[in-house]
Nucleic acid binder design. Sequence first.
DNA 1: AACTAAGACAACCGCATGTGA
DNA 2: TTCACATGCGGTTGTCTTAGT
Length: 339
Amino acid sequence: MVCTLYRRQPRRDPSSTHSWFLPEKLPMMRKPEGSPASNGGAKLRKGLWSPEEDDKLMSYMLTNGQGCWSDVARNAGLQRCGKSCRLRWINYLRPDLKRGAFSPQEEELILHLHSILGNRWSQIAARLPGRTDNEIKNFWNSTIKKRLKTSPPHRELGETTEAMMPSREHELMVVGMDSSSSSSSSVHPLSSRTFCDILFPAMTDGPGYGTAGVASGSHHMPVENIAQEDGLYANVAQEVIDMDGLMAMGGEQYFVPPLVSSSLGENATNAGISYQNPSRNISDNCNLNNTGTNEIIQGTSFVRSEIWEGHEDLRVGEWALEDLMEDISSFPLLDFQVE
DNA sequence: AACTAAGACAACCGCATGTGA
DNA sequence: TTCACATGCGGTTGTCTTAGT
């Protein structure tokens, strides 16, 4: 039997311009376990969130912002573990979430990024404003994966790869972005410098980091500095990409979408990073927290703005995807991505 | 109308990492 | 240095929805 693809109705109005819109009351997919009144406060609830719980968490986050998640759970009067609250907030309640179907541009971008980053869903999500890693992961596993089985990836996205693969392809396979297994998130134990040297022997400097020649090979920003500024994983491929959006391979430069601000209340790695348009700075609308996260994000934003001053169109929550796709269209799919 | 298969997606779980005492 | 705790991430599971039979 063949079922047509569909997506459920968005539960919130994605077209709303209001910073916060309360979720529609959800149909119960699963009966929430017990009621807060009946569990005596001892046992933590699991399963689907009730609308009441959502309201509690939402209003707590609105008034207090994010702090320690276990405190959030406790202070908001939720019989949930902090982890559960965090997940609910990030994946569902966050105001900057974009609901609804992925656009073709987004799909293509996901494919593209996945070919580069593998199953690093959080990294991919960081480049798709309003989308969560969970959402992208689900989308990939349920839709794209199946689609790719019936149509090879580089047929869909245009030319890649054999011709464009770096000559050290086999080393890439061994060293770095192994997404063939479920342990894709792992950071390879090899030193990042080694990885970098193997991957990008002729890395360029990016905007904000000088204009040394493409093949200089000696102007790498120190890994430590990159990590400091971006809060990135100790994965040089990612660091290279994140710091300037340019990935150099075999003397060619390829654009990788920059990190965008799409996740309020997360750390600076995944959260607010490129507020190019101050008028849309989310922190203007939301009292993020009172524990300093806001300042951190703004500080990071400053760094980011410098790095990305060539990309003025970056916006929070609404991304010029067309431009982006144009920019990355020159980036080859790297076929070390294995299903 | 009932059943079934498959898609969609919310949420849990385990692990890794970071941080502070 | 060690330990405990918080957080983040990716994989996986479970349940609901929908369409076809």
